[in-house]
Design a protein around this nucleic acid. Structure first.
Lengths: 204, 204
DNA sequence: ACGCTAGTGACACCGAGTGCCACCGGCAAG
DNA sequence: CTTGCCGGTGGCACTCGGTGTCACTAGCGT
């Protein structure tokens, strides 16, 4: 958050070292089996210092997520009003998750942990809440409704559900690009799940 | 879960006593400010015994949630194939949450805590995952797809998003019945969010 | 040489959760 | 009545995540 981006960036460097150590240890041993002492040792720092970089053991898995949310907010705010709301959200999601191919392995590692380990899965809800708030604000701005009303909230949570589901499928499959998975999920959602009615004209 | 419903039910009785003590203390003092020692004291038991009834401090807030999920599964399995998939899910959600008016205050208390306290919010994701699995299985059964495919997962997570959003709105408002809020959310979701396009024919 | 500051490590502390053992109640068999 | 079993319980010690405090060091300007 501070302007600590001078030259050698000694702070960001050790932060990254901790992150990698944590990711590797959690992946090989399991999140619960690794103590913060072990992570600190592997990163060459003390346990106390670990908690100066990450407020929580779980936080080491979620790189700089607040920056992620901030970028999403900027993208949503910059989206023009000429496109449908859902489209603007989808595009923002796609763009904010447009990683360089070199970063994909680490992203996979993060997501695999988050989706697999119950403790991290639990932690994720708090992170998602920040995303939902951003999207709900965007929808409220576009529709004139209150951000606490049903539709903005619902759009926020269900688009986020679409995004995380796309991530899961992308992670499990490994073939299709992430952007495609996101578009598939959003298309399905925006059209009211057309693949649920194969040839049934909804009797009643 | 067990058949512990004999006559006096001494076990279920103390369990309920713990639950009430926890709910009241958490509501008045805040979840993080109340120690398990305090809850145990208020319930007239020892800390060790508290953890024999609830695996986690947070679990005391979620009554018997596995029974809730089981009922949902039964309702989904019993739903006929004549109605659209989303309708069957909506009806199951409405029916499984059809509480007696006497139970509503306690339900509100639970939900307010769950939605408000970050620690409980985090815990909720693990509970929701069980619900999602049940719904995804139902969708997979109805559509013939794999339960791990995109559409069943997406339907599960977004319908659950609709349900929780409905709960939040119901909790905040207090006027409209829970069933109405659920129907509103599901209608919006099933129709692809019609209230997002007031008079705009989606230019491209 | 002086002080200031940022980053760090050591230590003590709290609270959630767990394993272990000892205790006490009832209850059936002898 | 005594013996032994058994489910529920309490006490205790321990691990581990997380926090507050303090002392130490390295750099850096004066």
């Amino acid at each position: 958050m501070s302007e600590t981006t001078v030259v050698a960036d000694p702070r960001g460097e050790t932060r990254l070292r901790i992150e990698r150590a944590a990711l590797d240890l959690f992946t090989s041993e399991g999140f619960d089996e690794v103590t913060t002492d072990a992570v600190a040792d592997a990163a060459g720092i003390s346990r106390r210092t670990f908690f100066r970089y990450f407020a929580t053991k779980a936080d080491a898995v979620w790189g700089d997520f607040t920056a992620h949310v901030n970028r999403l907010e900027v993208l949503l705010a910059a989206a023009g009003d000429h496109q449908p709301v859902l489209t603007s959200i989808c595009r923002a999601y796609v763009e904010v998750n447009d990683y360089a191919t070199d970063d994909l392995p680490m992203l996979r590692q993060r997501l695999r942990l988050i989706f697999t380990e119950p403790a991290l899965q639990a932690h994720s809800q708090v992170r998602y809440a920040a995303v939902d708030r951003a999207v709900a604000d965007h929808v409220a701005r576009r529709t004139g409704a209150s951000a606490g009303a049903l539709v903005p909230r619902l759009v926020a949570t269900s688009t986020r559900a679409a995004a995380t589901t796309a991530f899961e499928v992308w992670l499990a499959d490994g073939r299709l690009p992430l952007a495609w998975a996101l578009h598939d999920a959003f298309d399905e959602l925006a059209a009211g799940f057309p693949s649920l009615r194969p040839a049934r004209p909804a009797v009643r």
